[in-house]
C-alpha cells in the first residue's frame, strides 16, 4: 500500500472552487468593460488599468507589512479594480483612480483580514476615496441634470434605447445598461448568484420611486442601478449569508438608493448609502442566525 491519506471526514468534495468563481465574476465584468471602452476610449482604459494596478499593489503592500502570504493572482485584485473603475467618473485622473483603489484595498480589504472578510465593499470605499481625490466636479455633468429633469416629470417619454445602448453619460460602468444586463446574465447562467436579490432590489427601487412620486423608469434605467443590482447587492463578502438576509438586504438597498438620490440631488449619493448599508448587512446575519423559527423548535 503505497500511500493512504489519513484525514477527517467528509471525503467527498464538490467540483466548485473559489478560483473558478472569481474567474466567472471577472468574466461577467468584461461586457461592462467593453461598454466603458466604447463610450470613453483611452481614458477608460487608463482608469481601469490604474485601478487594477492600485488594487493589486495595495494588497501586496499591506500583506508585506503584516507579513502575510501573497495570494495573487486569484482574480480578486482585478475584480475590485475593474468594479471600482466602473464607479469612477470618466474625468477622474488615472493616478487618482490608482490611489483610490490602493487605499480601498489596503484599508477596507486587507486591514479587515483579507479576502472574504471585508465588511465594507472595497469598490464603494474606492469610490468614496475617489470623491475626495477628484478636484474636478465630482460626477459627470450632463447626465444627471437630465436625470432629475426626467425624474420630476413623471410622464415624460423616456428614450429607453438611449439608456440601453449607452448614449447617456455617467460614471464609467453606468452608461450601457445592456452590458450590465449581459454581465448579470452571465452570473445567473453560471449560478453564481440567486436571481432573487437583484429582482427584489429592482422591485424595491420601483416601489420606492413610486412612493416618493418620481419616475420609476428613470430610477431603474439610469446610473448605477443595474450595476448595483448585480454586483453590489449580490456581492458575497458584503451581503448577508443567510438566504432571507440577502433578500432583506436587497430590499433595503433598493429603498436607500432611491431615497438618497433624491435627498441629495445627485445620483451618485446612492453609493454612499450602499456603503452605509454594508455596515448593516451583518445585522441580518446576526438576527437570523440567533433566531430559530417555529418549525425548528416545534
Amino acid at each position: 500500500m503505497s500511500q493512504i491519506l489519513f484525514v477527517s471526514p467528509p471525503h467527498l468534495r464538490a467540483s466548485d472552487s473559489a478560483f473558478k468563481r472569481m474567474l466567472i465574476w471577472n468574466l461577467s465584468l468584461l461586457p461592462i468593460a467593453l461598454g466603458a471602452l466604447t463610450a470613453f476610449g483611452l481614458r477608460a482604459f487608463l482608469i481601469m488599468l490604474m485601478s487594477v494596478a492600485g488594487s493589486a499593489l495595495g494588497e501586496i503592500f499591506v500583506r508585506s507589512m503584516l507579513k502575510r502570504k501573497w495570494v495573487l493572482p486569484d482574480g480578486k485584485a482585478m475584480y475590485i479594480g475593474l468594479l471600482s473603475s466602473f464607479l469612477f467618473s470618466p474625468y477622474l485622473s488615472p493616478w487618482a483612480s490608482f490611489w483610490s483603489t490602493f487605499l480601498a484595498t489596503a484599508v477596507a480589504q486587507e486591514c479587515f483580514g483579507g479576502k472574504g472578510a471585508s465588511i465594507f465593499h472595497p469598490a464603494l470605499v474606492a469610490f468614496a476615496f475617489s470623491q475626495i481625490f477628484s478636484s474636478a466636479s465630482p460626477v459627470a455633468p450632463s447626465g444627471n441634470a437630465f436625470l432629475f429633469q426626467m425624474a420630476e416629470q413623471t410622464d415624460l417619454h423616456i428614450n429607453v434605447r438611449d439608456f440601453l445602448w449607452g448614449a447617456r453619460s455617467g460614471a464609467l460602468g453606468e452608461t450601457s445598461l445592456l452590458m450590465s444586463l449581459a454581465g448579470g446574465a452571465i452570473l445567473l447562467n453560471k449560478r453564481m448568484i440567486s436571481p432573487w436579490p437583484p429582482l427584489l432590489f429592482l422591485g424595491s427601487v420601483l416601489g420606492a420611486s413610486l412612493l416618493i412620486h418620481v419616475n420609476p423608469s428613470a430610477e431603474l434605467l439610469v446610473g448605477s442601478t443595474m450595476l448595483a443590482a448585480f454586483y453590489i447587492v449580490t456581492d458575497y463578502e458584503t451581503s448577508p449569508i443567510h438566504r432571507y438576509g440577502k433578500y432583506a438586504y436587497a430590499v433595503l438597498c433598493g429603498f436607500s438608493i432611491v431615497m438618497l438620490r433624491h435627498a441629495s440631488g445627485q445620483p451618485e449619493a446612492a453609493l454612499y448609502g450602499l456603503l452605509i448599508l454594508n455596515g448593516f448587512a451583518p445585522l441580518f446575519d446576526e438576527w437570523l442566525g440567533r433566531l430559530r423559527t417555529q418549525k425548528q423548535h416545534a
Partner: peptide, 22 residues
C-alpha cells in the same frame, strides 16, 4: 486554511438550517 468567501452555499445545504460559515 482557505478564507471564507461568504458565498452562503453552506447555509443553503445545511439540513439543520444553520449558518455554517459564521
Amino acid at each position: 486554511p482557505a478564507p471564507c468567501i461568504r458565498c452562503g452555499a453552506c447555509a443553503e445545504v445545511c439540513p439543520a438550517e444553520l449558518e455554517p460559515a459564521i
